[in-house]
Structures are given as C-alpha cells and as structure tokens.
Amino acid sequence: LPHTAVCLVCGEAGKEDTVEEEEGKFNLMLMECSICNEIIHPGCLKIKESEGVVNDELPNCWECPKC
C-alpha cells in the first residue's frame, strides 16, 4: 500500500508497529479488500461474526467481512 493510505473509518495510517502480539498487529495494520478496494484497519470494522479471508500471496490484501 502507498505511504499515503489511511483507514476509511478512523483516517489513520497503519499502527501495527505499536504492539507486540500478532493478533494486535493484524487489527492495526491497513488491509485493502480485493473486491471493494476499501482500505481499513480490521479492528475498525464493527463486524464480529465473521473474519475476512486474508490473501497470503499479497501483503495487506484480503476479502473483507462485508464482501
């Protein structure tokens, strides 16, 4: 993702460097949905019932829970 990318919900950049544990890092890193192209911190999504499908081949790419 470009350095200028920010979260659609909170308007902040990736914050994964501020935590140690892997789950915390994931919730604070910016992810781009391969379907709707929205860039968001997974932790900013209010959807709890399902998780997005992470694409292991492309960094910061997933199918968000909304899609």
Rank of each mutant, 00 (worst) to 15 (best):
L1V: 15
P2F: 15
P2K: 15
P2R: 15
P2S: 15
H3Q: 11
H3L: 12
T4F: 09
T4D: 07
T4L: 00
A5G: 05
A5R: 13
V6L: 11
C7R: 00
L8V: 03
L8H: 06
L8R: 13
L8I: 13
V9P: 01
G11H: 04
E12N: 04
E12A: 08
E12S: 06
E12F: 01
A13E: 15
A13F: 11
G14L: 03
K15P: 02
K15M: 14
D17I: 13
D17C: 12
T18M: 09
V19L: 12
E21F: 02
E21M: 10
E22M: 14
G24L: 12
G24T: 12
K25T: 04
F26I: 12
F26T: 08
F26N: 13
N27I: 06
N27Y: 07
N27Q: 07
N27L: 08
L28H: 14
L28Y: 08
L28A: 14
M29R: 15
M29H: 05
M31S: 03
E32G: 10
S34D: 08
S34C: 10
S34E: 03
I35S: 04
I35D: 05
I35H: 10
C36N: 01
C36R: 01
C36I: 03
N37K: 13
N37W: 06
N37P: 01
E38L: 06
I40T: 14
I40V: 15
I40C: 10
I40E: 02
P42C: 04
P42Q: 07
P42N: 00
G43K: 06
C44G: 01
L45S: 13
L45C: 05
K46N: 14
K46Y: 12
I47F: 10
I47A: 11
K48N: 15
E49V: 13
E49K: 09
S50M: 08
E51C: 13
E51L: 04
E51V: 09
G52Q: 09
G52W: 04
V53C: 11
V53Y: 02
V53A: 12
V54A: 13
N55Y: 04
D56N: 11
L58D: 15
P59C: 10
N60E: 07
N60H: 09
W62I: 00
W62K: 05
C64W: 01
C64E: 01
C64F: 01
C64K: 01
P65I: 00
K66T: 10
K66G: 06
C67A: 01
C67M: 00
